[in-house]
């Protein structure tokens, strides 16, 4: 409806949508939307690009995702979660899977993950793995993280226990 109550045709609606009048109210709406988008995508749900193959075949090199940061506001990290781990800042982060929690022992024997001495089924691991790692206990306030790509040599793969305060969120999908 226009100001006098007459119906507005579609062309006019489309024109107003695509070429809105630069009224103060419109500019306020634009600024609010921009601020909300900046806050949401800058601090709550940050877009990121995956570089590297340590999480193949779950996450592929060059893939795109969002980092959902509030995930652990009301819950604790648990085994099987894929988490983002901060380094010096948040521009570049590690993406790894939690395989053991504080107090548990972790080991690899002929490629099989052992937690507290028991083998763990890992359907997300594709390809052959021949890793061997003696048992070690995860320190308090730490979790043990490993990438899903176990077909690469163990020496070339960054994994191990990490402090909980470095976990900054989870990928959205």
């Amino acid at each position: 409806m226009d100001a006098e109550g007459w119906p507005i045709d579609m062309d006019e609606r489309l024109r107003r949508f695509l070429f809105p009048s630069l009224t103060p109210a419109f500019l306020v709406r634009v600024v609010l939307v921009a601020l909300c988008a900046y806050g949401f995508f800058g601090f709550v749900c940050t877009p990121f690009v995956i570089r590297g193959k340590s999480m193949e075949s779950t996450y592929h090199d060059g893939g795109f995702d969002f980092l959902w940061k509030p995930h652990y506001l009301y819950s604790e990290p648990k085994r099987g979660d894929v988490v983002a781990i901060s380094l010096a800042g948040e521009d570049v982060v590690y993406l790894k899977r939690i395989v053991a929690l504080a107090g548990q022992t972790v080991a690899f024997k002929d490629g099989v993950l052992l937690v507290d001495g028991r083998p763990v089924a890992e359907p997300y691991v594709k390809g052959p793995c021949d890793w061997n790692l003696p048992p070690r206990t995860v320190e308090p306030d730490h979790v043990y993280v490993v990438g899903d790509n176990r077909s690469m040599p163990m020496e070339q793969h960054d994994f191990g226990q990490v402090s909980l305060h470095r976990i900054i969120g989870v990928p959205l999908w």
Partner: peptide, 22 residues
């Protein structure tokens, strides 16, 4: 990336950052 630069003394800089080598 993420270079955090501090100066504990006038001619000394302490830098914490992330390095990526490809």
């Amino acid at each position: 990336y993420d270079l955090d630069i501090r100066f504990p003394e006038s001619r000394t800089a302490r830098v914490n950052g992330t390095v990526r080598i490809t």
